[in-house]
Amino acid sequence: MVTNLLLIFIAAFIVNNILLMRYIGLCPFFGVSTSFSTAFGMSSAVLFVMLLSTWVTWILYHFVLIPLDLVFLRTAVFILVIAALVQFVEMFLKKNFKPLYSAMGIYLPLITTNCAILAVTFLVIDYKYSLLQSTIFSIGTALGFGLVIILFSAIRERLEFAPISRSFKGYPIAFIAASLVALAFLGFVGLFGLTL
């Protein structure tokens, strides 16, 4: 049982990394990963919200939508719940944990439009995971997101000073660097028999 969970974690964390192997969550990825502190703030906010939203949507899906056979409402309900959740978290943090809010707060509104959060809630349903498995899956995905975004923010900080031709400066070189990192992550396919 434990190896099963561990393998789900590794699959979500490295092998099927949500950013580099599934392409999900790219908009904030290029926007926020310019410096380490922003990248760290963003990934901790994503971990926090992804976990909460996976729980809420999983419970909502299995105990409300399925018994009432309203599966078609899935998209609308999930995204509404996530938007509201982010709103509550932002207000809650602003009131009680001021320092945490100032470190993480600015990224919270960004997260509502973050594809990764919604994608995880859907994948967890499609894979028919139990609640425990989906928790592990969402933690793994969030850490995978954080790993790549922090790794990449270090690269981009170096890119600032590298001599690059004018038309490649900025986003193009970031994309090409991302493709090389994705190539490296491709090497993980098949780790412990985990295929894509």
């Binding site: 009432l68 309203l70 409402l73 719940v81 709103q87 509550f88 207000m91």
Partner: peptide, 28 residues
């Protein structure tokens, strides 16, 4: 019944969230 159920559930959710939002907005 599908039409009714979906209206009830989704409408209820929207209403609930709206009220919760307004309430928390004031309390917090």
């Amino acid at each position: 019944s599908i039409f009714l159920k979906s209206i009830l559930i989704f409408g209820g959710l929207g209403l609930g969230l709206g009220i919760l939002l307004a309430f928390i907005n004031r309390k917090l």
